[in-house]
Nucleic acid binder design. Sequence first.
DNA 1: CCAGACGTTGTT
DNA 2: GTCTGG
DNA 3: CCAGACGTTGTT
DNA 4: GTCTGG
Length: 233
Amino acid sequence: MPGRLSIFDDLAFKQDIAKKFGPFRDTVGLLNKRYNIAPTLNIPIYTNAKVYAYAHFGLIPSWASQRSSMQINARSETVFEKSSFKEAYKQRRCLIPLNGYFEWKKDAVSKTSKAHFIVSTSGDYFTFAGIYESWYDNALQKSILTCALLTTEPNEKIAKLHDRMPVILESNQWELWLNPRSSYSELNSLLIALPSDKIRYFPVSELVNSVKNNSIECIIEDLEVKPRQGTLF
DNA sequence: CCAGACGTTGTT
DNA sequence: GTCTGG
DNA sequence: CCAGACGTTGTT
DNA sequence: GTCTGG
């Protein structure tokens, strides 16, 4: 379950968007770099209305009264038919630029979870397929954007880590994904795993476990091998 | 008809 | 808001 | 996703 | 063990 994200450089994405779709409204501006993004925090999204804006990570249906009814992931196999997602899927699709995301793999022996950072093999950013909603926040007395990312069956490489993975789009698929006239069958053809050779992952520090940590240490490869007890001499 | 749910993942 | 279950 | 809380009453 | 918050 992609439940922890990272974005610290969106310049290439913004250039690519402008090149492909022309001018857009940018309410993000200078990106707030975040190496460790948990649900409920804001992530930038580019919407089918040509707006680049922050959205609450965790989609809250417009009719929901509580923030806690948010969903961070939507299964691509059923997103078109679920009451919480179907309207957003039909009318409000977006791109979510990210530099990477995290998965935790549980060790059967130690029973502890180890974090891994997943990035593009090319060193480029990822673009996740997302859906978004507007939700009235009573505390703030205003509407906010909320979003969720779509998941699918993992490719061979990610399957070693997890049994789901986010839908990651390539730039030649963006237009079809955002176009309001795209048919369900056209959209469906996009909701598949990115090939294994375009993605890689490595273990990272346990610092990322706590949402309070947001330093670059969260995404640096952790090569430290834990010494086994009783092996000193 | 009204009431109540509406979701995913991992783990058991 | 919209669907499902009773 | 993981970490951290998990409760009540009366008083300030 | 399970829920909530970030």
